[in-house]
């Protein structure tokens, strides 16, 4: 193990950073797009919401390798097609949790907010999103885990990341390279999940005194 680190240590750091960078970018885009859509869906009628949810579910069923390969005609190879593909995967869990979390907010609260003269926007920002925050966050956590795992595949289209170790290991039949790529992916996923768990606790609205 020490010898592995001596040989590949610097490379490992670079690849881990690439991996994290691709995943974070994709997830961030996912949040930026899916949360507002999820919020807006609660204001749209049921049919629209169903259609949007179905589309997101459909995107989720495309095999990861196929989706990555499909990106090449549009974006070539490298980081960008990888980020776009991972972003598409991150959408559904975030979208679904945002929508359901918002729908689950006690109707009495929304009624009270409206009845006291909040605009629809104020109600969303001050009441509904804070109340739905824990559910939305758990969707983001789920997406983060998926995205980090699938980012390993992105090396196939030249995006770099820890997937490079794994694919090299497979090609060269080197178990140490395979493990050297997959163990950091696992650790990365766990650490990110733990950090987002902390964030989830932080955004969960306080309902009792400290």
């Amino acid at each position: 193990m020490m010898s592995f680190l001596q040989t590949y240590g610097a490379q490992l750091l670079v690849k881990t950073w690439q991996h994290l960078y691709i995943s974070a970018f994709a997830l961030l885009l996912g949040v930026i797009v899916a949360v507002p859509i999820g919020v807006l869906l609660t204001r749209a009628n049921g049919t629209v919401a169903n259609v949007v949810m179905s589309i997101a579910s459909m995107l989720q069923t495309i095999p990861a390798m196929a989706l990555l390969a499909l990106m090449i005609p549009f974006f070539g190879i490298g980081k960008i097609p990888a980020i776009v593909a991972l972003f598409i995967y991150s959408l559904l869990p975030i979208l679904r949790n945002t929508y359901l979390g918002m729908k689950d907010v006690e109707p009495a609260l929304i009624d009270a907010a409206k009845g006291m003269g909040m605009t629809s926007g104020q109600s969303i920002i001050k009441v509904e999103v804070p109340m739905a925050a824990p559910v939305i966050m758990s969707g983001i956590r789920l997406s983060a885990t998926y995205v980090i795992a699938w980012a390993a595949l992105a090396s196939y289209i030249g995006a770099g990341g820890l997937g490079d170790f794994i694919f090299n290991g497979l090609n060269l039949y080197r178990t140490d390279l395979i493990l050297g790529g997959s163990i950091p992916v696992i650790i990365l996923a766990l650490v990110v999940d733990w950090l987002l768990g902390k964030l989830e606790a932080a955004v969960t609205p306080r309902t009792t005194q400290a």
């Binding site: 009495a108 009270a112 907010a113 009845g115 006291m116 003269g117 001050k126 309902t207």
Partner: peptide
């Protein structure tokens, strides 16, 4: 919205904001 701000509103489920 302006109208509602000048009319008090109390509902059965109380509707206090828990957060």
């Amino acid at each position: 919205v302006k109208l509602r701000r000048q009319i008090g509103y109390v509902i059965q489920n109380i509707g206090l904001m828990p957060h």
